[in-house]
Structures are given as C-alpha cells and as structure tokens.
Amino acid sequence: MTAGTPSPLVNLFEKEDFEDWSKPHLVGATTEYSSLLALQAKKEGGERKYGNGIIVSVVTCTEIKQGVAIETGKTSQAYFDACSVIELDDEDFKTLGINKNTNVRVTSAAGTVVLKAIGARQGLYPGLAHIPMGPWANIVVPSYTYSTGEPCFCGFDCLIEPAPEAKIESAVKLMHEKCGLEYVGDPHYD
C-alpha cells in the first residue's frame, strides 16, 4: 500500500449517519467497541504486523510541553508541535521500517489522523505508543465509557502506517473538517 491511500481498516469503522435522529444511538460507540475487540483479537494472535503497518496500544497523557503550550494558546505553533506527534518505541520504528520524525497515519476504531512519529520522550516498550492529550489524540480516542462517563483515553488499539507524504492539519482546521463545518481560515495560525 502506498502512502496516501486510506487504511484497509477504515471501512471497518464506517459510521451511521450522525445527523440521522431516527436511528438508535444507544451506546454511542458500540460499533467502535466491537471493532476494537476485533483488533484486540488480532493482537492476541501474537502478530502485531498488519499490512505495512503495526498495531499498538496507545495511551494519551498530559505533558509539560503541552501544558505550557495550552497557556501560550491552543492555536499556537507551540501547541501544534507539542501535540501533533505520536511517540513510538525504537523497536517499533524498526518493525515499521521508518525513520524517526516521519509522518504516520494512525487509525483506531474511532477515526484516522496523521501525526509525526517521534522517538519516546519518556520510556515506552514495544507495542505501546503515546500521543499527548489534545485535538489530534482525540480523533482516535474511542468514546465508549463503560458507564462511567470516561472514554478510553488510555489503552486502545491503533494501526500505525507510514504516510511520509501526508500532511498534518492544524488543530482548528482538523476539527472543522472532521465536524463537517466550513473552515474559513484561522487568523491565529494559518
């Protein structure tokens, strides 16, 4: 698969039309949840490779750089640099066959986002990846809450595929596009 083509998993996660009120919306992400289990099953099989990508468990946490950047402004370059990344273990870089600082496409049961893969700032192990909290991470965070109100911010499976040509969107543009809103340009960032 070449960079730029959508991931084979994407149609697995086809959603119901979210504006259609007549359809039941019982447990928001049950659909995601079952495909999450499908991914899990693959992982338990011992094989983390999938196509030309790998399946990893992702955690999203706060970081000091992200904290400072929140105060600088969520439309700032600092926030972009701090949050639009995914940290991978060195071993996983080898399995993926890419160098550090390459863009990758991250697909979970909830969605797909392009991020820059960087080396671990804080120690990981093979099969564990970290995305700093923020709009980019939230595209792939499944919304299932196990009846507690808390979505799966930590410990959900993602497919990571190399996508060196793909572009990382700015936060506001990304949100507008994914929400299906018209994006009129961001005076603070563009």
Binding site: F18, T75, S143, H176
Partner: peptide, 29 residues
C-alpha cells in the same frame, strides 16, 4: 480539545456558547 471527537462533533452541531478568557478549540467551534 479534550473530549473524544465523536462527542465534539455533536457539540459543533448544536447551539454552543463558550465562556473562556482565551481562544481555544471550543470557542472556534
């Protein structure tokens, strides 16, 4: 900025008012 996207998308499609000193993701949606 901090809810899973599925929830944010809903928020963007209903009337929303944000009280915040600064520009943030919520104010922009």
């Amino acid at each position: 900025a901090h809810f899973p996207f599925e929830a944010t998308r809903r928020m963007a499609h209903i009337p929303t008012i944000t009280l915040d000193p600064h520009i943030c993701m919520s104010t922009e949606l």
